[in-house]
C-alpha cells in the first residue's frame, strides 16, 4: 500500500512551471531517492508534499487521505517530517529545545512525555554534547544533524531529507548514512533528495529523476543510473 501518492501535481511561480504534472507513489517502508540538476524543482516538490506550499493542480494523498489542501502543521500531525536544504534552526532556542518544540507540537504531547525521547535522538544524532547550546552557534555539520534530529523528534512515518549530506566529509557522511539506515530500519519511509550519489544509493531502494519539474524516470538505482538520458541530463555525460 502506498504511504504517499502524487497524481498529476503541478506548481508554477508566475510564468515558470517548477512542478509539471508529477505523478508517483511510495510504498510504506520504502526509501526513495530523488535526483536531478539544480533548479529541477526537487525542493519545491518537498514543499508541496509537506504543505509549505500548495499545488496549483493535481492531488496528494498521504496514507490514503487526500492532503492536497491540508496545511503543513496538519501534515506534520499526520506523520510527515522534513529537513530543509538550507538548515532552518530556531536560532535562539538551544539544540534540545529545538527538538522539544518539534516533539511536543508534532506529537501533541507534554514536555515530560517527550523529553527522554528527545535526549535519545540527540544521542543517536551525536548532538548530545551541544544539547544546551543555542542553535545559532552550531557548525554546518551540527546544523544538518539538527535538521534531521528535529524532523525525527516529530516521530514521522514519512521522513523527507533535503540534501542532508551536502558539504560533509566522507567520515561525516558515513556516520550520517548509518543514522539514516537505522531510522529506515525502524520502518520509517524515507524520501531523500541528494547530490552525493554514493550516499544516496547506499540507502535507497528506488530512484526518481526530476528535470525541469518533470519526472523523467523512476526505478531501481542501477537501472536509472545506466539510462542514457539520465546520464546526459544529470551527470552531463555525452553518450
Amino acid at each position: 500500500m502506498p504511504i504517499l501518492e502524487l497524481k498529476n501535481v503541478s506548481k508554477s511561480f508566475g510564468q515558470l512551471k517548477v512542478t509539471d504534472d508529477v505523478s508517483f507513489s511510495v510504498p510504506e517502508g520504502q526509501a526513495l531517492g530523488i535526483i536531478g540538476p539544480n533548479g529541477a524543482g526537487k525542493s519545491t516538490l518537498f514543499n508541496l508534499i509537506t504543505g509549505n506550499i500548495l499545488s496549483d493542480a493535481g492531488s496528494i494523498a498521504f496514507q490514503d487521505r487526500d492532503v492536497t489542501r491540508v496545511p503543513a502543521m496538519q501534515r506534520c500531525f499526520a506523520g510527515v517530517g522534513r529537513s530543509f536544504q538550507i538548515p532552518q534552526p530556531f536560532d535562539n532556542l538551544t539544540v534540545f529545545e529545538n527538538l522539544l518544540v518539534a516533539a511536543m507540537h508534532g506529537r501533541n504531547q507534554s514536555q515530560k512525555e517527550v523529553q527522554q525521547a528527545c535526549a535519545q535522538i540527540l544521542e543517536q544524532t551525536e548532538l548530545l554534547p551541544v544539547a544546551n547550546k543555542p542553535a545559532a552557534g552550531l557548525s554546518l555539520l551540527q546544523r544538518k544533524r539538527l535538521e534531521m534530529a528535529r524532523a525525527l523528534a516529530t516521530d514521522p512515518k514519512l521522513l523527507l531529507l533535503d540534501e542532508i549530506a551536502g558539504g560533509l566529509t566522507d567520515a561525516e557522511c558515513v556516520a550520517l548514512i548509518d543514522t539514516i539506515k537505522s531510522v529506515h530500519a525502524r520502518g520509517v519511509t524515507i524520501i531523500w533528495i541528494e547530490h552525493v550519489l554514493h550516499a544516496l544509493t547506499s540507502v535507497v531502494e528506488r530512484l526518481l529523476v526530476l528535470d525541469f519539474g518533470k519526472v523523467i524516470g523512476i526505478g531501481a538505482p542501477d537501472e536509472i543510473m545506466n539510462r542514457q538520458d539520465v546520464r546526459e541530463i544529470y551527470l552531463g555525460i555525452e553518450v
Binding site: C76, F90, D91, N92, L93, R107, A153
Partner: peptide, 12 residues
Amino acid sequence: RDNPEAAKSVGV
C-alpha cells in the same frame, strides 16, 4: 519568532 516556516513544519 525565529522561523515561522520551520515552526509550521514541526506542527506549530
